[in-house]
């Protein structure tokens, strides 16, 4: 269904409904909050520019998602070598209070994700964080459903391994 938003209203509505979740999505992919904020801002600016061809909130959300994933990937590729040499989390020993343990647990998950191949990470994040179906993931990433399936199962296994190692 089309809504009668102009591009400015569309940005406001979509921002109110989805900004935080999209930034979190990007954090799962690029790890760094500031970069994620930039990525999502860029995605909103791009959505504004092409609102005339989107016109529907559903389409706009699909576009934002895709745009955030593509831009996050692009940022990671620019980081290149650096991203592949993350500090080994097992050498960090924060204090044993609850807050530190929680932070540590979260860091482990982000670290483990960062060690996965690009496509596996993207598929897992779309599946478990955004709860997208196989077909939606295939659309978002422009790959076949079969590829989604195989990235998901390999990625899940690899993620479990990384999490085990980090413990």
């Amino acid at each position: 269904m089309s809504v009668r938003w102009d591009p400015d209203a569309a940005v406001e509505e979509m921002y109110a409904a989805h900004y935080r979740r999209l930034v979190r999505l990007s954090v799962l992919l690029v790890r760094d909050v500031e970069t994620a904020e930039e990525v999502v801002q860029d995605a909103f600016v791009a959505m504004h520019g092409r609102w005339r061809s989107l016109r529907e909130p559903d389409k706009a959300l699909a576009y934002l998602r895709q745009s955030v994933v593509n831009r996050s990937r692009s940022v990671l590729r620019h980081r290149g070598v650096r991203a592949r040499h993350l500090p080994d989390p097992s050498h960090e020993h924060p204090g044993a209070d609850v807050e530190a343990l929680t932070a540590e647990r979260r860091t482990h998950v982000l670290d483990a994700l960062a060690h996965l191949p690009e496509r596996q990470r993207e598929v897992l994040v779309l599946r478990y964080y955004l709860d997208l179906s196989e077909a939606e993931i295939a659309d978002t990433l422009g790959i076949s459903r079969g590829a989604v399936k195989s990235h998901a199962s390999r990625g899940t296994a690899a993620l479990r391994n990384h999490l085990k190692d980090a413990r």
């Binding site: 406001e12 909050v33 904020e37 979260r106 982000l110």
Partner: peptide, 17 residues
């Protein structure tokens, strides 16, 4: 996955957009 980013509170950036 939810938990891993549950503490991320992005800066407000509607004005910049």
């Amino acid at each position: 996955f939810d938990d891993a980013v549950s503490d991320v509170e992005p800066r407000h950036s509607l004005d910049q957009i």
